[in-house]
Amino acid sequence: MRTIHFTLNDEAVSAQAAEHHSIVDVLRDRFDLFGARESCAQGLCGCCTVLVDGTAVSGCLYLAAFVDGKTVTTIEGLAQNGKLTPIQEAFLETGATQCGFCTPGFVLMAGQLLAAHPDPDDEEIRHYLSGNLCRCAAYPEIIAAVKLAAGKLRAGRL
C-alpha cells in the first residue's frame, strides 16, 4: 500500500492504493467514479479511458501508483455545473450513444482528436477512434457526432 497524491478533475486529492491496483480500481473504489470502466481488460475497447496529464490512456492497464504527482481527468470532470461540453452535446444530439457503456471513452477520445485536428475528415476520425469499441455499433452516428462537435467547437472559438 502507498499513498498517492494527484489532481483529479481539477481537485487535489490523495488516496491509498496497493501497488497492483489500476487507476480504474482507485477511481471506482476511492472516489465513486464509475465512468471509466474495465470491460475488455486489454486496452482494446476504450471503456476505461482516462486522461493522464491531458493524454488518453487505458486505465485498466495503468497502475494507480503511476499517477502520483500527475493530473487525472475522467468523463465526470468534463461537464461543469451540469453544462455539457460541445462534444457531449453532439453525442446526445446525433444519437451516438446506445447502451452508453463505451460512450465516455469515445467522448474523451473525440476530445483528443479535436484538440489535435479541429476539422477532421472521416479517415482521421476513424484513425483516432479505431481503439474504441461499441458493440451496439453506433459508429456512423459517432462519426456524425464528432463532425457536429467539431463545428460547435470551431463556432465557439470564433
Binding site: 468534463l78 452508453g100 465516455p104
Partner: peptide
Amino acid sequence: EGAAKVTGR
C-alpha cells in the same frame, strides 16, 4: 437518458 450516458453517470 442521453445526458446521463455522455457524462458517464
